[in-house]
Simulated scan of single mutants.
Amino acid sequence: MKEPVTPAEREVVARQLGRPPRAVHAVAHRCPCGQPDVVETSPRLEDGTPFPTLYYLTCPRANAAASRLESAGRMREWQDELATDPELAARYRAAHEAYLAERDALGVLPTRNTAGGMPDRVKCLHALAGHALAAGPGVNPIGDRAVAEMGEWWANGPCAQEDRP
């Protein structure tokens, strides 16, 4: 369930990212610790630049977990599987179409590109995991796999602690 981002959540996301977030308008998913871990961004940045990444994984621990999967070669393995498994490829294409429909509801871009390489490539597990978390299980099969293999990134509590004087 997407919720408008509050000023306090914007501060949490800024601490997670190490910079102010851009074009964020909603919290798309919350980590079990309660903090945002995926935000929904506008299809265009504040200056009008197209930004095709609708769902942005913000938790540094979740990002590290996705990076470990990429380093272990999971993208390449799943890319190879897309070429040989028509059912997986069809489900991944459907995830791409669902992603585009959600993005287009906020603003249509001149490109049909989506994040993560959809519908034909597995390019970025961070983006695919963000989509899977935001959309819920069963929408993005590659994102679901990534989330399942990322482990419990939240297990040590909130990643972004409040600044204390």
Rank of each mutant, 00 (worst) to 15 (best):
R22K: 15
L54F: 01
V27W: 00
V39E: 01
E81M: 14
L106E: 13
V38K: 08
P32Q: 11
V24D: 02
C33M: 11
Y99A: 11
R19I: 08
A64C: 10
C59Y: 03
A95I: 07
A98D: 05
G18S: 10
L45I: 09
R74C: 15
L45H: 14
C33H: 05
G48A: 08
A98F: 07
T49Y: 13
E9A: 00
T58I: 09
A28Y: 04
D104Q: 10
A101W: 01
G73F: 00
Y55V: 11
Q16M: 10
R68S: 07
L54V: 04
S67D: 15
G48V: 12
V38E: 04
Y55L: 07
V108P: 03
D85E: 04
C31L: 12
A95E: 00
Y55P: 13
A72Q: 10
P52N: 14
L82M: 00
P32T: 14
V13M: 05
P86C: 03
E9D: 00
G18Y: 02
A26Q: 10
P21R: 00
A83Y: 15
V13A: 04
E102H: 09
R22F: 13
R103F: 01
D85L: 03
P43D: 07
A90K: 11
R19S: 07
R76M: 06
L45D: 15
V38P: 09
Q35T: 07
A66R: 07
A65H: 11
L106Y: 15
Y92E: 03
